[in-house]
Computed example of a mutant assay.
Amino acid sequence: MKKLRRDKNKTLHLFLLLVVTAVFIWSVIKPAGYLIWILEVSPAVIGLMIVLATYNKFRLTNLSYIIITILAIMMFVGGHYTYSKVPLFNWAKDIFHFNRNHYDRFGHFLKGLFVIVIREILLRKTPITKGYWLLVIATSISLAIASLYEIIEWLSSKITREGKITKSFLGMQGDIWDAQWDMSLTLVGTILALLILSKLHNRLLKKFK
């Protein structure tokens, strides 16, 4: 039974890896710009390399791998088109008369899902147990990562000093409060992920004990 479960898990993990690889290959073919592509996809590539390098030593739950896959795909799509020009969200902008392409906002909201991966690492690798402090620390780390990403965007804009590339990477679209919106949406996504997925996550974690 355990062997069968392990085989099913490995099949799922291989499938997720193939999907991510396919999207990655697609994203690198004629992107909006190769420098902006590198800036946008680098965090996802580094994260995936860490996941692959630690796969045999520290196996995550299927939920965590699915979340990592979703976030990587989201970043590869954003890197291909740039976050302010993703076609589906341009269509939504025209249909609903939005004042901007909201893929960037949607992406930062989705990044709140990463709190489940953080939660898993805290529960399995630290003395922290389920309860109030787990919620507080996991949420704080999620927000810290979101803030660090905004700082990296700002530093990159200062270093490159290439107007078009800087604007595409920052994705501000004229909103001076863009960084605050991004971090706020990550917070909302984090809270919702903890509320909706924690019970499922707990059931999956039991299999590792």
Rank of each mutant, 00 (worst) to 15 (best):
53 A>K: 08
24 F>L: 14
24 F>S: 09
38 I>Y: 13
39 L>N: 08
46 I>C: 04
46 I>Y: 06
47 G>C: 11
31 P>T: 02
31 P>Y: 01
23 V>Q: 05
53 A>G: 10
29 I>F: 15
45 V>R: 00
31 P>W: 01
29 I>E: 13
36 I>C: 12
43 P>E: 04
24 F>R: 12
46 I>E: 01
45 V>D: 02
30 K>H: 07
53 A>L: 11
39 L>E: 01
46 I>D: 02
24 F>G: 14
45 V>K: 05
49 M>G: 14
49 M>R: 03
37 W>H: 04
25 I>Q: 11
34 Y>K: 06
48 L>S: 12
48 L>G: 07
27 S>I: 12
26 W>M: 07
48 L>P: 00
30 K>Y: 15
42 S>E: 07
29 I>C: 08
32 A>H: 07
45 V>W: 05
53 A>D: 00
45 V>I: 09
37 W>M: 01
41 V>D: 06
34 Y>W: 12
45 V>Y: 10
37 W>Q: 01
26 W>H: 11
44 A>F: 08
24 F>W: 12
47 G>V: 05
51 V>T: 06
53 A>F: 06
37 W>L: 05
23 V>Y: 11
38 I>L: 10
23 V>P: 11
39 L>A: 05
35 L>E: 08
33 G>S: 13
27 S>P: 00
36 I>R: 01
24 F>P: 15
25 I>W: 14
50 I>C: 01
26 W>I: 10
40 E>D: 04
44 A>C: 09
36 I>P: 08
44 A>M: 03
47 G>Q: 10
33 G>M: 01
53 A>M: 04
23 V>G: 06
51 V>L: 10
51 V>H: 07
36 I>Y: 06
40 E>M: 06
53 A>H: 10
35 L>A: 05
27 S>N: 10
42 S>C: 07
26 W>G: 11
29 I>M: 15
49 M>S: 12
42 S>P: 13
47 G>I: 00
48 L>E: 05
41 V>F: 06
44 A>R: 00
31 P>H: 12
45 V>E: 03
44 A>N: 04
35 L>H: 10
23 V>M: 10
